[in-house]
Nucleic acid binder design. Sequence first.
DNA 1: TGCCATAATATGGCCTACCAAAATCCTTCA
DNA 2: TGAAGGATTTTGGTAGGCCATATTATGGCA
Lengths: 231, 231
Amino acid sequence: MNDNAHSAAIRVERPAKTLRELALDKVREAIVSGYFRPGDRLVERDLCAQLGVSRTIVREVLRHLESEGLVANLPNKGPIVAQLNHDEAKQIYEIRAALEGMAARLCAEQNNPAIADALDKSLEDIKRSYREKDMAGVLAHTSSFYQTLFSMVDRHVAWGVVNLLTVRINHLRSMTIKTENRDVQGPAQMARIVDAIRRGDGEGAYQAAMDHVTSASAIAQAVLSGRQPID
Amino acid sequence: MNDNAHSAAIRVERPAKTLRELALDKVREAIVSGYFRPGDRLVERDLCAQLGVSRTIVREVLRHLESEGLVANLPNKGPIVAQLNHDEAKQIYEIRAALEGMAARLCAEQNNPAIADALDKSLEDIKRSYREKDMAGVLAHTSSFYQTLFSMVDRHVAWGVVNLLTVRINHLRSMTIKTENRDVQGPAQMARIVDAIRRGDGEGAYQAAMDHVTSASAIAQAVLSGRQPID
DNA sequence: TGCCATAATATGGCCTACCAAAATCCTTCA
DNA sequence: TGAAGGATTTTGGTAGGCCATATTATGGCA
């Protein structure tokens, strides 16, 4: 027993990730990062070669990404990287507004100072990343901010939905945060959310969260209008 | 050209359903309908035999259902039918409330009488199904009511999210609608939504939609408390 | 009898190889 | 030139096999 407990204590935390999960992450990352562009065909056997795995894995991965909305399947032609149009992007921002607004309200109604403190910490990270011009960091810490918002009130299902939708607009997000003045306005809007939460002002937190997403959406629309869709 | 246009016009809407999609629907239906119970193991090779398809297909289907949240994968044990706990159900109802409330508000702000008319039609179908004690019909027409709500304002992404979440609580829905008085209260609450939309009262429609889901959620919680989880 | 080590079984994870059907590209011949 | 008709590419789908792990028998030993 003692021996067992001991070996358990030193047990190496093995990856436990299956090859399929690794491949899934790789391909998702490749799409989100723009290595595969919207409209690109994802030929199964090519992916096999690039990933170094069998078709079985590739097919399962493509199915998974299809159900995530990152990949579209043309009948008898095969999978391509999904194209996000104007309208869908708008809808995604709208849903995020509704859910993040909800989460912010719940946080405010919790009246727990630890929540605002945790959010402030993420906010500092975001500002620092902006100062260091580390845009990947801005995105990551912004995600972290919202994850905190949801997890502090135990809304992991809603967080899952938001997360799922967010990967589909990732390239838009990375463009909006580079917009002029966004390094000041973005954090300012998020600070309003935190302030309302700290005051216990549910309605204010809701509005502030809605406003933040809404302004991001407006910028995204402008970006999309400026550059013609990749069609 | 003319010929082309003509042949396109009469083109038979071919099934186009791949075997995988058929299998996916079958298994999803089997889970939603309760043929497979929460916690049941879904042994790949058994499913192959039952569905009459290859393991490739079965695996892709399982992956798809996993990302829908209907199937859970235990490491080193394999897939089982996902178990819905108390808290998750509550969260799902909460998200539906937020999104259906949003859709109802948008419908109201549209000021288009056709919307309320279409909703009224679904509502009549629901009442008739209740009178005929056709509970499957009640569920179907209720879905149809909400689908109208979303599609009338072109919010198919949000509808997709709601739909995805709804399949996971399908058994709860089928219990809530059988609750005492639900055949009167349910339609009455939905009529309030329609009335507000017809009046162009966005805030009222939002509240009415929230109230409807919230009361369904309360009933679901009661049902879940009454009968111990299937563990 | 009771317990432990071992073998058998079940199952998921992963792979290769194959076939049919559809789309597409390419060649050839009138 | 241009249309018929292969050849190629690629998906959709199948079959079956290998390995690792986990569970379950099983049989032998104290």
